[in-house]
């Protein structure tokens, strides 16, 4: 079963209960605006945020739990990994603090505890350890009073999303965000506004990001062996050439 979250931004009333439930369940302290914030509501102590747009629409932002996550592919010590249930979780005992995942994430989700002497990456883990493992849904979807954000099987939620769009063709933009782009995500959105502002670039393709690195990484062993053999060969050939030249040079005066 691949779990997912479907957020219907037309139903969100901006009550922030999901934010507070998240803080409660994950024991996140009250935070304050800091210099290093991105001003989108997310921070090391806020794993989900409700963005109030200028047109008074509310959009909840959280980790998208990509099906092929760039953060997981980039982490050099495998501190992040995609679980079978769907969430991308973080093992802080492995982390070395290189922040490559923050650079790699196309949605700009992972945040860092910049003010700490022992800083860790902070991001939504879909309540994996606290609730999901024990058969309970994430705190944010459970607390949502209008069911604007719901939890369930990804395929069923996709069906639900398409059904809602079909039933209210005038209400929604005809697109499920997270269905295809960058290989798909586990957090899906349907909305009456364009949600491209949630991401770095508006022009996301359907190819997952780790695919871009794969050819380079697959070439590593061949490059290593190839270069080593080429260098050894070159040295031998040039040495041989020098030797022949020297022999010819020494023979010539004798003749």
């Amino acid at each position: 079963m691949k779990t997912a979250i479907l957020t219907d931004t037309t139903k969100c009333i901006g009550c922030h209960l999901c934010v507070e439930a998240c803080k409660e369940v994950n024991h996140l302290p009250n935070d304050m605006p800091r210099r290093w914030d991105m001003r989108d509501g997310l921070s090391a102590d806020n794993w989900t945020a409700v963005i109030r747009r200028d047109d008074d629409k509310f959009v909840r932002k959280q980790c998208r739990h990509c099906l092929e996550p760039a953060c997981v592919a980039s982490c050099p010590v495998a501190a992040l990994h995609k679980t079978n249930l769907g969430p991308v979780v973080y093992d802080k005992t492995r982390c070395i603090g290189c922040r490559y995942c923050m650079m790699a994430c196309p949605y700009g989700i992972p945040r860092y505890q910049w003010d700490s002497t022992v800083p860790y990456i902070q991001k939504c883990v879909l309540c994996y350890d606290t609730r999901l493992k024990h058969g309970r849904e994430p705190a944010c979807t459970e607390i949502c009073p209008t069911k604007a954000t719901i939890f369930g099987d990804r395929d069923k939620l996709l069906g639900e999303a398409h059904q809602r769009i079909r039933q209210n063709p005038g209400k929604y933009i005809h697109r499920v965000w997270g269905e295809h782009e960058l290989g798909g995500t586990s957090v899906l959105y349907i909305s009456d506004v364009d949600l491209s502002f949630l991401t770095y670039g508006a022009r996301f393709g359907e190819k997952p990001l780790p695919v871009a690195t794969r050819p380079a990484m697959e070439a590593v062993p061949f490059t290593f062996l190839g270069v080593a053999m080429a260098m050894a060969g070159l040295r031998w050939i040039i040495g041989r050439r020098d030797k022949v030249q020297r022999e010819e040079g020494s023979q010539e005066p004798e003749e």
Binding site: R94, P210, M217
Partner: peptide
């Protein structure tokens, strides 16, 4: 000790 061979940074 912790390997992720897919990561360029690991390499």
């Amino acid at each position: 000790i912790y390997w992720n061979p897919h990561s360029p940074l690991f390499e």
